[in-house]
């Protein structure tokens, strides 16, 4: 059985997430530029408006997936001993999962 995030799948996730990150960043920057100056309340209302909350969540999910593939590549290249590699990948996965959960919590509560 193939791993979900290895080979072609990891490569595809990295490219698709990069495209979404670029699209979202350009969209967000354009929106902020058009509505400049913007108060914190206006910004918060925009982020939590219909569809935007989900789009922001998707942005952070894409960012974390992109980070995972990139960091995993670095670990595969440089960390050779299997035990150390497993430990480093485990810490990375936990760290990214914690970041993701924290981000989701912030966005849900906002």
């Amino acid at each position: 059985m193939k791993s979900v995030l290895t080979g072609l799948r990891a490569w595809t996730v990295q490219r698709v997430s990069a495209a979404y990150l670029l699209f979202f960043l350009l969209f967000a920057l354009a929106w902020v530029a058009v509505h400049h100056p913007m108060s914190e309340a206006q910004w918060r209302a925009w982020v939590t408006s219909g569809g935007m909350r989900e789009a922001t969540m998707l942005f952070f999910a894409a960012l974390l997936a992109h980070m995972w593939v990139g960091l995993r590549d670095v670990v595969l290249d440089y960390v050779k001993p299997l035990l150390v590699r497993t430990a480093v990948l485990g810490v990375l996965a936990l760290g990214l999962a914690a970041l993701g959960s924290w981000t989701a919590l912030i966005l849900i509560r906002a």
């Binding site: 193939k2 791993s3 290895t6 080979g7 072609l8 990891a10 490569w11 595969l76 290249d77």
Partner: peptide, 10 residues
């Protein structure tokens, strides 16, 4: 054969 973490995707 090439679709794994190492053979091609390094």
């Amino acid at each position: 054969f090439l679709d794994d973490a190492y053979r091609l995707f390094r």
